[in-house]
């Protein structure tokens, strides 16, 4: 009962926090480029405006996919807040990712279809890394559950430093940050129009924006698990990681999928392999 309550609170609060984080992201990015940037609540203005726009679609299936993306993203955050199984959380967020891709595929427009294929490649790149990170956490706690992490008396970061780096790789892709923003950029610039987002418009795009906020919270939640022993540590680690993501986003250019897959699999597997061997050797 308590976990259900936590899940509902998480699902209610996450979009608010996620939207604010996105706003902060835009301000910090603007400051990095010596601009002033939009107001903090700009993401909410954007989403509300989109929600109020005329409904247009090319294929009704897009609406189905947009809703499923949002529901899956919200459910994964709910499961995280309920302290559920990490692999389950990961699989449920994959439901959202798959439906986003299917929604982009639903319209025969070259931009959204190329975006969809690139999104699939991004999934191929980050999914194994997240699974391996979860396996690392399992080896530390003896359980796949989130609440087991909070039972530890020492931050995970000390034992899983390389896996934390690996998770950082995966999160850069998930947050749509350079150099991995190849399917759709978090900001409004992209060589393939808006990639997977191209064909969603009005309220459907609003749903997708909100789903992205949920995903931001999910990602930050995963990061916070690495310093689960104190609240201050969690906040500090999350802030530092997110700041690093923004910095990487601003100092690097967009790369190709080939480079992404090669570098991410190679470095990710080597780093997580080394870290996992340490754990097995214990």
């Amino acid at each position: 009962m308590k976990s259900l309550f936590l899940a509902l609170i998480g699902m209610a609060v996450a979009p608010v926090v996620g939207g604010l984080v996105s706003g902060l992201d835009r301000i910090l990015t603007a400051r990095c480029q010596s601009r002033k940037g939009p107001p903090l609540i700009q993401p909410f203005y954007d989403a509300a405006k989109l929600w109020g726009k005329e409904v247009t679609a090319t294929n009704p299936w897009q609406a189905f996919c947009a809703v499923m993306y949002l529901v899956a993203a919200a459910a994964s955050v709910g499961l995280l807040c309920a302290g559920s199984d990490l692999l389950l959380i990961f699989f449920v967020q994959a439901v959202g990712a798959v439906f986003l891709v299917m929604g982009a595929y639903a319209v025969p427009s070259p931009y959204s279809q190329i975006g969809a294929q690139r999104e699939l490649l991004q999934m191929v790149a980050y999914e194994p890394l997240i699974i391996l990170t979860i396996v690392g956490i399992r080896l530390m706690t003896g359980s796949f559950r989130v609440d087991a992490v909070f039972a530890l008396d020492q931050p995970l970061l000390f034992k899983l430093p390389l896996l934390f780096l690996v998770l950082g790789y995966a999160l850069t892709i998930k947050l749509r940050k350079s150099p991995f923003d190849i399917s759709a950029c978090h900001h409004a610039h992209q060589e393939i129009v808006r990639g997977v987002y191209t064909e969603f418009s009005g309220p459907y795009l609003a749903l997708i924006e909100i789903a992205h906020w949920y995903e931001v919270i999910l990602v930050l939640g995963l990061v916070s698990l690495f310093w689960a022993t104190s609240i201050a540590g969690m906040i500090l680690l999350v802030a530092a990681t997110y700041a690093a993501e923004i910095l990487v986003d601003n100092v690097s250019s967009r790369m190709t999928w080939r480079w992404m897959l090669g570098s991410v699999w190679l470095s990710g597997l080597v780093l997580s392999g080394i870290n996992l061997v340490w754990l097995y050797a214990r």
Binding site: R26, P38, K53, V193, T198, S201
Partner: peptide, 21 residues
């Protein structure tokens, strides 16, 4: 550009009619 920075007003050059106002 930083000199004018229209993003201050929430203006984005979105490049896609389906998203634009």
């Amino acid at each position: 550009t930083p000199l004018y920075d229209v993003e201050r007003f929430g203006i984005l050059n979105i490049g896609n009619p389906k998203h634009a106002d």
